[in-house]
Design a protein around this nucleic acid. Structure first.
Length: 383
DNA sequence: TCTGGGGTCCTTCCGCCA
DNA sequence: TCTGTGGCGGAAGGACCC
């Protein structure tokens, strides 16, 4: 009897927020569109009844691009970029405000469509999931000489289901684990399907830049570049011991495993939250003394929002923390662990106030946040 | 024209205690 | 009693991700 192959899929919706917006405004198809900023950029009805959209060049503020259509990406606009900077690159691009309610709706639709084919799903946020296909009927079937034929057909069925349910396209990578699946889903984006076997790692994964590994960010990428390591293959050629010397025990070992495509993390169908937080960046910087009242009102509102989130979801937090960002972008945090977990706004406000007293507030502030951690289930709180 | 908001995980440091 | 060691919880910061 043949050993069964572990097949994990990573499904990533293509330019998700932007694509959902295009369903609503089909006249924008093919145009550069950027999603981000506040509610005030809602399209208006023009004199002739046609919709009038905000343009990026008219934007003023501190927002960033949440998503951009592929046409906008051609101008060098990508998610995370400040909208003011994006406006310099693509002044004529359409600007649409984010509508999370709508995106969550489509998120539920596509996940339900996937679950019809394969029920073992790990949520990775609003627009991506991992799917364990190993034991789905057909996954282990061969088609002629192609041992991956069965799982490929399954992935194609999932893509068809998603398109039927939402009208949206997605990209899927199917491989023996989550780490590789995440990379494989980007190989043929958008609207792609890539199956990569363990035997194909040297030809299909090793040529990729190290930054494609989920877990190598800007800092680690730059350090690797400084060591002359640009591709995953070059990383795989490094001795494990040497990587440990360079990056420490935990991260060094992980880099070595990742480069060789090793990852045995399970697909987690359920997870408990670790913390809940609310934060806001001010329209303009605020000073603790000069803007005392305004800051105090915002602070109280954040505490109330955290309390409401905790209660709605049935949790209480024992550690209450604050986060401050100064005008020079320096970030500090303070937290305080209480004798008892709480989901009550007044208690959170008091604890957060004590945290705030431990910070030097002489510099102007650009951001304020409140966080509850060390969460416990709190049944009565959800009532 | 500087750089959102909501998270997770890891490392380091410190004090307390056995 | 002094010194060392090691575990542990809490606090702070940093890297990374969507």
């Amino acid at each position: 009897m043949q050993a069964r192959t572990r097949w994990i899929a990573h499904l990533d919706m293509d330019a998700f927020y932007a694509s959902v917006e295009l369903l609503r405004y089909p006249e924008l198809l093919g145009l550069p569109v950027v999603i981000g900023g506040g509610r005030r950029h809602q399209p208006q009805a023009g004199p002739d009844g046609a919709r009038v959209f905000a343009r990026l060049r008219d934007y003023a503020g501190r927002g960033v691009a949440t998503t951009a259509t592929y046409a906008a990406r051609d101008y060098g606009v990508h998610s995370g970029m400040g909208l003011m900077k994006a406006a310099l690159r693509a002044p004529d691009a359409i600007l649409l405000p984010t509508d999370f309610e709508r995106y969550r709706h489509y998120s539920r639709l596509f996940k339900a469509a996937v679950a019809e084919v394969a029920p073992l799903i790990e949520d990775r946020g609003i627009d991506e999931i991992y799917i364990d296909l190993t034991d789905v009927p057909g996954a282990q079937d061969s088609m002629g000489h192609d041992s991956t034929g069965g799982v490929r057909a399954l992935a194609q069925e999932i893509r068809n289901n998603v398109r039927r349910a939402t009208g949206l396209s997605c990209s899927i990578g199917v491989t023996p684990n989550k780490l590789l699946a995440k990379m494989a889903s980007e190989l043929d984006k958008p609207d792609g399907l890539s199956v990569v076997t363990a035997a194909e790692i040297p030809t299909r994964i090793w040529p990729l830049p190290v930054r494609r590994i989920n877990g190598i960010g800007p800092k680690a990428g730059a350090r690797l570049a400084g060591l002359g390591i640009a591709t995953i293959g070059q990383l795989a050629a490094c001795e494990r011991g040497w990587l440990v010397e360079q990056f420490g025990r935990s991260y060094g070992r992980w880099l070595h495993e990742a480069a060789h495509g090793q990852d045995d993390r399970p697909v987690a169908t359920h997870h408990e939250p670790v913390s809940m937080s609310r934060e806001t960046t001010f329209e303009h910087n605020l000073h603790a003394v000069r803007d005392r009242d305004e800051l105090g009102a915002i602070f109280t509102r954040l505490c109330e929002q955290v309390a409401a989130d905790l209660q709605r979801k049935g949790y209480a937090g024992r550690t209450i923390g604050i986060k401050l960002r100064f005008d020079d972008f320096r970030t500090v945090t303070r937290d305080l662990t209480l004798p008892q977990p709480t989901a009550e706004a007044g208690t959170i406000r008091h604890a957060a106030g004590l945290c705030l007293k431990r910070v030097d507030l002489s510099r102007p502030l650009r951001l304020l946040g409140v966080r509850a951690a060390a969460l416990v289930r709190h049944a009565s709180a959800s009532l």
